[in-house]
């Protein structure tokens, strides 16, 4: 190799990202929330340089729990009654279980990319991704609340919740992608596959823990169904398309158009 044909330099480090300030151990929840949205690379630096106790992960999880409970309350307000406490609990339980069962595969799939990330870093990254998903869902809460009070159609409300969930998961898992790219890894396909798996798990979890939207005679149903089969069944014309009729609820008396 002569001077005219120098060896190509190694992949340059993204200086602007690697030099972003690290969050202090005493960072408040609002600072972490702001960091999640405005400076994700600062949060990633904090995770990567954090050798002490996982205070950041605990705060991220606290943020996640609070936001998911509010989101669950909004879903519960579609039917009120026992769903006001059941829906938040089910949402929280579903997210925690989904995260726990997907964490091992996340570690394996990220390892397949050749990254230098360690398990504690990946676990904190997942906590950060969940916090971001929860924060976005919190942003969707006013929108969903308006429709939970307006519509009686479970498929319609379910579709809105699903759309919000997909958008939130898209952005949340984007944080994991950024974290991976932060380690100069260019191979991202395994992580993309894992994101698909995580999405499938959470969608199936919503079917396993049904009813979350609407009411039923029992808190859980023992009938096992694949989520697509469940959704198609719920949307079929044979199945009543409107909210399960609740006795003495004047909102289920039917309504007619009253002009524009």
């Amino acid at each position: 190799m002569n001077d005219q044909n120098p060896t190509p330099p190694a992949l340059p480090l993204k200086e602007e990202h690697s030099t972003e300030p690290v969050l202090s151990q005493k960072a408040t929840l609002s600072e972490i929330f702001e960091c999640l949205l405005k400076h994700p690379h600062s949060l990633i630096n904090t995770i990567r340089q954090n050798d002490g106790p996982p205070a950041l992960a605990a705060k991220l999880l606290g943020l996640t729990f609070a936001a998911f409970i509010i989101f669950g309350l909004t879903l519960g307000s579609f039917s009120f009654n026992e769903q006001l406490w059941a829906a938040p609990l089910k949402i929280l339980m579903g997210v925690i279980v989904s995260a726990i069962i997907c964490l091992p595969s996340l570690y394996i799939f990220t390892a397949l990319t050749g990254t230098s990330l360690k398990l504690p870093e990946i676990a904190q990254g997942l906590a950060a991704a969940l916090a971001l998903i929860a924060a976005l869902l919190l942003g969707f809460t006013p929108v969903l609340w308006v429709f939970s009070q307006s519509t009686e159609s479970q498929p319609f409300f379910g579709f809105l919740v699903l759309a919000a969930w997909l958008i939130a998961v898209g952005f949340g898992t984007g944080l994991l992608m950024k974290m991976l790219k932060h380690t100069q890894t260019t191979k991202t396909t395994p992580l993309r596959i894992w994101i698909g798996i995580f999405l499938l798990v959470t969608l199936q979890m919503s079917t396993t823990l049904r009813p979350i939207i609407g009411r039923a005679d029992t808190h859980f149903t023992s009938k096992k169904r694949f989520f697509l089969e469940h959704w198609i069944g719920e949307m079929s014309p044979e199945k009543t398309p409107i909210k399960k009729k609740i006795e003495n609820d004047p909102r289920t008396d039917g309504w007619q158009d009253k002009g524009e």
Binding site: V146, F147, Q149, E152, F156, K258, G259, E260
Partner: peptide
């Protein structure tokens, strides 16, 4: 929710329709 705006002929003039949150 905030309808009526144009005011359908035949329907009474009102700030909001009865039960405005019903339906989407």
């Amino acid at each position: 929710i905030l309808r009526p705006f144009f005011g359908t002929p035949g329907l009474e003039v009102a700030f909001l329709r009865a039960d405005p949150m019903r339906g989407t």
